[in-house]
Design a protein around this nucleic acid. Structure first.
Lengths: 229, 229
DNA sequence: CATAGTTTCATACAACTGTTTGAAATGCAA
DNA sequence: TTGCATTTCAAACAGTTGTATGAAACTATG
């Protein structure tokens, strides 16, 4: 029964550093310094720097996708098998937005790491990320059931724009704050989710929307076995 | 009268490489190899790698902002001093979208470089980028004149979402193509602009929109004097 | 306690980074 | 041409990167 202390410390420190400063200028020495472990520990526990990044990304991808799908299934159950478009989009953008902009620090690092990963595409992540398409396809399918009269193209663009607004808000929310001189409040996560969902629904239907949604805790790391994504 | 051949070759090669592969993994040796010049030429002509990046960014920022403002002014002139919201948003997202997704390669590299710069914030660029806020403020002002009954907060969020959809489409359009199995056509630039503008206008008004817009050539490099941005 | 397996540690290594150097090449005016 | 400033070039520099090594420290079972 290994204590896993070193392993976990490395994962946690790496995630936080990558989330804060991006992949480009975070070195292994930065990570081991923040984790207060020896330099060789990374290669001992993970094999290489790339494998560390990959493990981080796979773990968080699984967690995020699971969270999204749980919300989607809950919405579909509540709607008797057919969720309304509002709750589908809420399940799509809610977990990430709450994670990145919410008050909880640990969640924040996890979600902001995923945003970094979605931007600064490093080789170990690029290889894994193609599978996210399959995950999004489930949401496209739910949207198709919810809006059967809309064309496929419209649905895909709506999905795309919803993610665009959510991600850009996380990635560049600081600019919005500066531009609006504080008027736009990034701490009002629920309000932001409402905004993104409302606009997305309008983009998809040309009408309006409403509703609410719950929160969820962040998962610990755990040791990856043969999980894929 | 210096021939500027080496200088220009470096700028052009660097821009293309940064646009394609990001700042992280493009080395000076990659650049000079692509430009077919000597390694020391970069430091001789630009002083340092960071100054090369900064010059590239300043040049392109000036060009993009000029192009946007020209379209904005044209729209305001056409509207008798008060442009309609549709054409304002079109002036905001049009130049970048046309530049990044259009067929012209040179434009493409220039615009995609700017997208990279807006994401992978490297130190030399970060220092300059704060001034972009002032540029966006001009669009916020025009929007305020166009929609005087809307609250400030709504205007800023609308501006933010418009840029979000445009940038994400450029940055991650490939995912949309894969997801939709080719249904969403990234080559139809005008259609994309229409889409982004339409959704943005709906977000701002809850109604609908229409209109069209012209194109413009990319500017050459030239030697920066005391230009700021 | 003794021993085998795991984990930590200081240190070294080779590769690559941006930058510098001083000499060679080039362009151009007198 | 000669002379001078600008530009190019090959080579080397010092610093940093990810990784590897082998000994030491630790853990737990017999």
């Amino acid at each position: 029964m290994p204590s896993d202390h070193t392993r976990t410390a490395i994962l946690s420190a790496a995630e936080r550093l990558y989330a804060d400063r991006g992949f480009a200028d975070v070195t292994l020495r930065d990570i081991v310094a923040a984790a207060d472990v020896n330099l060789a520990a990374v290669n001992y526990h993970f094999g290489s720097k790339d494998e560390l990044i990959a493990e981080l990304f796979v773990t968080r991808s699984l967690a995020t996708n699971r969270e999204r799908l749980n919300e989607l299934k809950a919405a579909e159950a509540a709607g008797g098998g057919r969720a309304n478009i509002d709750s589908i989009l809420r399940a799509l953008v809610g977990p990430t937005l709450r994670g990145c902009l919410g008050p909880d620090r640990e969640r924040s690092a996890a979600a902001r790491f995923m945003i970094r990963a979605s931007i600064e595409s490093v080789p170990p992540i690029r290889r894994i990320k193609n599978r996210e398409i399959d995950h999004l396809r489930k949401f496209a399918a739910a949207m198709r059931r919810s809006l059967p009269d809309r064309s496929e193209v419209e649905l895909y663009w709506g999905l795309h724009f919803a993610l665009a607004m959510a991600h850009q808000t996380i990635r560049d929310g600081e600019r919005l704050t500066k531009l609006s001189e504080g008027l736009c409040d990034l701490n009002d996560v629920q309000g932001i989710i409402d905004r993104v969902v409302t606009v997305s629904v309008m983009a998809l239907t040309g009408g309006e929307a409403q509703s609410k949604s719950p929160a969820r805790p962040v998962a610990p790391y755990g040791r990856l076995t043969r999980q894929d994504l």
